[in-house]
């Protein structure tokens, strides 16, 4: 029997900024190459989902008006189910706006507090000026080289991590990161990962993609069922290297 994995893509037609689709394409293709049966379920505003049979969730970012369109549905309707499933080991990747929305709150420029899902012990404050550019991180999520993660960030919110977040996604080697000062980027809570990196994140960071797939498989089959095959990632790493080199070249 083929092992299977069920991936839920939240609000794909609304939160689809900066090639967010690329992350889902990468998960889909890699699952197939790993010999898994993969189901992608797009879920939008007003559609019921309890995540009981979901192994991995992806949520991307949107422009302000788009995020406003999904805000209530995510925080009030889907949020509690998402929290419960995350506690039981469901893997999550939340990028940019999705990352902010899964935090505790967002404080707007006018001081208004917008409550978040509260999955990450993190909060975001509107900032002056956007943090835009290439990013290179070093992560502790795995031990094999390369431990770098490459991407591109573009955000005005500054995100701060609380005690409840045990580790960021990585330390910033190039770029701004969560708040432009702490040299930390993203957040990891259990099997949930939040980050500002798009560009697209997973295709050029195959190890991160496989990390998430493994977490998803573990939820369904336990640790002994989460093994993956070795893929030929030569082109992925060439693109990874090229992005890292561009990041350095552009800073000079």
């Amino acid at each position: 029997m083929k092992r299977q994995i069920k991936i839920c893509h939240l609000y794909p037609e609304i939160l689809n900024l900066y090639g967010d689709r690329g992350n889902v394409i990468a998960l889909y293709r890699r699952c197939l190459w790993h010999g898994l049966a993969v189901h992608i379920q797009p879920v939008t505003v007003g559609e019921a989902v309890d995540f009981l049979d979901t192994d991995l969730v992806f949520i991307g970012g949107g422009q302000d008006r788009e995020q406003a369109a999904i805000y209530r549905d995510l925080v009030e309707v889907k949020g509690p189910y998402l929290l419960a499933a995350a506690e039981q080991g469901m893997a999550i990747l939340a990028v940019c706006g999705g990352f902010q929305l899964l935090g505790k709150y967002y404080r707007t420029q006018h001081g208004e507090i917008m409550k978040g899902v509260g999955l990450f012990d993190a909060w975001t404050e509107a900032g002056r000026g956007r943090l835009i550019g290439d990013v290179v991180l070093e992560t502790d999520l795995w031990e094999e080289e390369p431990r770098t993660i490459v991407g591109f960030e573009n955000h005005s919110g500054r995100t701060f991590l609380g005690e409840g977040v045990k580790q960021p996604l990585g330390r910033v080697l190039q770029g701004f990161g969560n708040d432009g000062a702490s040299k930390m980027e993203g957040a990891v809570s259990g099997n949930a990962i939040g980050t500002y990196l798009h560009g697209s994140l997973l295709p050029k960071n195959p190890r991160l993609a496989d990390y998430l797939i493994r977490c998803g498989l573990e939820r369904r089959y336990g640790p002994e069922g989460s093994y993956l095959t070795t893929l030929n990632d030569e082109l992925e790493y060439r693109a990874h290297q090229a992005a890292a080199q561009r990041a350095v070249a552009r800073r000079c």
């Binding site: 690329g22 293709r29 030569e234 082109l235 561009r246």
Partner: peptide
Amino acid sequence: GLRREDMALRLKYAGFQPERIAV
């Protein structure tokens, strides 16, 4: 181009056979 690897990777994930793409 400067991001030739990214474009090739995009094609690979669109279902192109990587060996058909010359970078």
